[in-house]
Write a protein that binds this DNA or RNA. Structure first.
Lengths: 149, 149
DNA sequence: TTCGATGCAAAGGTTTTGCAGCGCA
DNA sequence: TGCGCTGCAAAACCTTTGCATCGAA
């Protein structure tokens, strides 16, 4: 049986000789309830709704911890800010982003994954992770553009 | 016959009804002489060596133009700053990055490229570009780690 | 009791913007 | 000649850090 996210985080915190605090618990809560890709700022706003005394810095610090623990993954979409998505219980995926409207589709292709492993091996690297962003025009924006801008 | 970078940029500038200036010419010069992945700051330092009156802002603005024109490509390695690499006359490649020492190998795999096209098409997207970063341990760092940290 | 965590505000680093003057087309 | 471009400095962002205090283990 798989451990739930809270157990994973507790274990991680204990292993690193860190401490479990109400703030961390609550940020984790809000983060898990989230879907998609949040910035620290967005998460901070939502966290503040119930616990108005939590600080920005704590959210930044906690998101880093979550990424370290393996529960979260940092992704960059090119707007200035770092975004985090849930890793727990999610199948791995990459991102297909519309350059016009910004819509973001999660995609996965096992064959690509396999080839990445192979490319790394070919160069003697031990692959630990990857980030793949595909940019293009979504069907809607293609239509709009064809239909006379 | 292929147009040289200067012609490409002139054309681009003309097409967009912009203007060719000494500053732009010079930033392009320095950029083309560069290899690897420069930040705006790095380029600014080098440009200032011969033309000490060029401003930071102009370098930022010009690098964006170069990216628009297709001569440069923006890449992010995760340190805070945006980096640009030359696209002209280079074969397309992706990046294989060592998480330990930061060494950066340029790699290419036609099969992956082809599969990306297909994934995009499967979702109705018209693919215009992509960014693939592979993270891992380079051969040297694997050895060091095996050899007792 | 100890040492990590927190909140706040200040500092840091990168990129953008406002503006008056300049100069390419 | 007009409008885009430039340099400068200020502003705008996102993120990190210093510090006194608090609190989990």
């Amino acid at each position: 049986m798989t451990k739930d996210p809270y157990a994973i985080f507790s274990d991680f915190v204990a292993r690193k000789k860190l401490k479990m605090t109400p703030q961390r618990r609550q940020i984790l809560d809000v983060f898990l309830a989230e879907e998609g890709h949040v910035t620290s700022e967005e998460l901070y706003q939502k966290v503040k709704r119930d616990a108005s005394s939590i600080g920005q810095a704590t959210v930044y610090r906690t998101l880093k911890l979550l990424a370290d623990s393996g529960l979260a993954k940092a992704v960059e979409f090119g707007d200035g800010a770092m975004r985090y998505e849930i890793l727990y219980g999610q199948t791995h995926h990459d991102h297909l982003i519309c350059e016009e409207c910004g819509v973001n589709v999660e995609v996965v292709d096992p064959a690509i994954e396999r080839l990445q492993e192979e490319v790394a091996r070919r160069h003697g690297f031990a692959l630990t992770g990857h980030k793949l962003y595909l940019y293009g025009l979504c069907p809607d924006c293609q239509k709009k553009r064809a239909g006379g801008l």
